[in-house]
């Protein structure tokens, strides 16, 4: 089951005693991988398929048993119905603003802190690091009441500030993650720059950030997704509908003892399709990025 990440060009150069069998072996290997990928994709894509299929069903078909995968009839009306209950275009924009603030925080503030934690020696640094990591161990929900009080004092309730400002100042999760990545980048790469008298800020900006592109792409995606799907924060700190996010908007389809599943799934589909597109376009950065071999050689 364990296959290392034999990247194409390299296996081409493979020197192997049983060279005769190599084409067959490779074929089998490729086939095996393809099968695993298809199987895995089937399992992992199931919810998406289900969601889309349900978004086109009448309510009475949604809980039919055994499950119906292809709606009959197709209820296209679920999609326009969404807008009767929730102005998704408005929520989309609100969510985007909040999510971009999170991405900004993750990519810039967090990477700055991560650079300090991974490269710069200072008394008490490791203690500060542990304090930061331990920040994640306090359950968020017991901090809600004091936080609410704090934001109320600042007159921040029902604004985007509680959802953006703290995130822009950095999140332990991303700092920790980036620190781990930075620690795998060899020191030699910046030593030359230090000797040339470059400032640390410059090194961070011109050497570390470009090298850490896959990691930055990862935290960018993560922070974006987190903000996109976050429910608790918007629920507690936003009151009026003009400021709602998409995840709060989904509540509009859930009534007491009744859920409008068709429109709910249609809204969910509208909510995640843009993300999938962004992800699809961004994913090549996860593998592209580092050409460390070249730099080393």
């Amino acid at each position: 089951m364990i296959r290392d990440q034999a990247i194409g060009p390299q296996s081409e150069r493979e020197i192997h005693p049983g060279a005769r069998w190599q084409p067959l072996r490779r074929l089998l290997e490729r086939g095996g991988i393809q099968i695993l990928l298809v199987l895995g994709a089937l399992i992992f894509a199931l919810p998406f398929v289900w969601m889309v299929s349900t978004s086109l069903k009448a309510d009475r078909q949604i809980f039919a048993f055994p499950p119906i995968w292809v709606p009959d009839p197709f209820i296209w009306g679920n999609f326009p119905a969404v807008f009767i209950y929730a102005p998704m275009h408005l929520y989309f924009f609100n969510t985007l603003v909040i999510a971009l603030a999170h991405v900004f925080g993750a990519v810039f503030t967090c990477s700055l802190a991560a650079y300090a934690f991974s490269r710069l020696r200072a008394p008490g640094r490791d203690l500060i690091f542990m304090v930061m990591v331990s920040q994640m161990m306090i359950p968020y929900i017991v901090m809600l009441v004091p936080l609410y009080l704090l934001f109320a004092e600042l007159e921040w309730i029902d604004t985007f500030y509680p959802l953006t400002i703290p995130a822009m100042l950095g999140t332990p999760f991303y700092i920790f993650m980036l620190r781990q990545f930075f620690l795998t980048i060899p020191m030699e790469l910046e030593e030359a720059a230090i000797i040339d008298g470059a400032t640390r800020l410059r090194i961070w900006w011109t050497i570390i950030l470009p090298l850490a592109k896959p990691a930055l792409a990862t935290v960018a995606i993560f922070s974006f997704m987190f903000a996109w799907n976050d429910f608790t924060g918007p629920l507690i700190f936003l009151n009026t509908r003009e400021k709602f996010t998409l995840s709060l908007g989904l509540q509009a389809f859930m009534f007491e003892r009744r859920t409008m599943w068709g429109p709910l799934m249609a809204a969910s589909t509208m909510m995640i399709v843009p993300i999938l597109i962004v992800f699809f376009l961004a994913q090549k950065h996860f593998i592209q990025g580092i050409a460390l071999t070249g730099i080393k050689a």
């Binding site: 990928l37 895995g40 994709a41 992992f44 894509a45 919810p47 998406f48 289900w50 969601m51 349900t54 997704m225 996109w228 799907n229 995840s247 989904l250 859930m254 709910l264 799934m265 969910s268 909510m271 995640i272 993300i275 999938l276 992800f279 699809f280 994913q283 090549k284 996860f286």
Partner: peptide
């Protein structure tokens, strides 16, 4: 690229769905 996206799908589907 498509596979990577599909494998990631469960992480972003809203929990109610």
């Amino acid at each position: 690229a498509v596979y990577r996206t599909l494998f990631y799908v469960p992480s972003i589907v809203p929990i109610v769905a």
